[in-house]
């Protein structure tokens, strides 16, 4: 399963929105193969009878009251870190894809 092709890495880079260079893809293809070979070891003990753990400390029903909090930002604060804005909204260049 650890056979990873350059095409797969290119696909993953696309999913992860990183414009990797061909050189990076080649390099990562080799490295990823090695790393996956090492981590695949988990399947040796991950048998069907073992339940998964997604939270180290099991809590449940953590909820807040439906009340406006004190962390609301001003528009100035919201936009302060933006690469580009028009004083009310964030500006992005043209969108190619459609929303999901």
């Amino acid at each position: 399963m650890s056979e990873i092709s350059a095409e797969q890495v290119a696909h993953l880079a696309n999913l992860a929105r990183i414009a990797l260079t061909d050189e990076e893809i080649q390099h990562l293809t080799t490295e990823l193969g090695q790393i996956m070979q090492a981590v695949e070891k988990v399947s040796e003990v991950a048998t069907p009878d073992v339940p998964p753990t997604s939270h180290p400390i099991p809590l449940r029903n953590v909820m807040r009251d439906d009340v406006v909090g004190d962390t609301v930002l001003t528009t100035e604060q919201a936009l302060a870190g933006a690469p580009e804005h028009d004083d009310t909204r964030f500006v992005v260049s043209a969108i190619l894809g459609e929303e999901q």
Binding site: I4, Q8, L15, E40, V42, T47, T53, P56
Partner: peptide, 21 residues
């Protein structure tokens, strides 16, 4: 991204969560 992608989740992320147990 690879560990979570369709078809690999159970073998990778899912199994890792079992090791956590």
């Amino acid at each position: 991204t690879y560990a979570l992608s369709a078809g690999y989740y159970d073998a990778y992320y899912g199994s890792a969560q079992k090791v956590r147990t």
